[in-house]
Amino acid sequence: MPGSWDYVTLLLYLASLGLYVRFVYTGRRATGRWAAAALALGLLGHYLALLQRSHWVHSVPYDDLYGSLSLFGWLLGATYLGLELYYRQRSMGTFVVPCVLALYVAGTWPGQHLPATHLEQGPMFALHVTLSVLAYAAFALAFLLSAVYLLQHHYLRRRGATGWRCPAMWRFPPLEGLEKMSRGSVLVGLVSLVAGTGLGLAWEYETARHVSLADPKVLVTLLIVVLYGGYLRISRRAGWRGARASLVCALAFLLVIFSYAVVNLYLSGFHRYL
């Protein structure tokens, strides 16, 4: 059930989205700053809403799919805001904030709560889940950056004026910037995923005294690490750098969706140790 912070957060995210869209159309720096400020406040509200939810259900925010979605949205927004401040590129907010908003609404408004199943898992488990969700959020961001790269690359290669009619096209980050941001995001994701998986395996060993590599979640995670590691490698190599590497990055995200949605929903029995 949505709490008081949820409505405030929703309004702030909507305001941020409106301001980001206005920013790419008008190019006014002040509008961009307000958009980022609204997003930062939205993330603060979202954080408080997650806390409120935890208090209500006496559990961690990711104890069911809805909470996990909400946490995913929060980490996606926070990672993006960090990248925005580091690279000084605001226009991507137009693509990122709708995703944050959608994840937030999907995680908050259904009004259901699946009963908590594992309350006694301890801080190592909590960190394992949080780092894994952070990794998914960073990969989602890399996907969006790669998609904008491919779109812009497409228009630049077409050579004609089509596409440049839209003022927003002149304001998205340049291809080199998108590539750097995407690599940065994937790096954050990989480090988080490797650390999160390591913690998960350590927790599993502590709990069950064995480590099961036959777990589909672990296998898909390893595949994700290999794919994104490969992306980081080819993105600087001749013949792959540029659009081809961005395509690999975008396609790799399909596996992340598979891991997050399909494995979690349908193969979750293999990933339970209590």
Binding site: R157, R159, G160, A161, R241, G242, A243, R244
Partner: peptide, 15 residues
């Protein structure tokens, strides 16, 4: 050619 962006006068004039 891959990673090459070529514009001639026609395309630039259109822009």
């Amino acid at each position: 050619l891959y990673n090459l962006y070529l514009y001639d006068l026609d395309s630039l004039t259109e822009i």
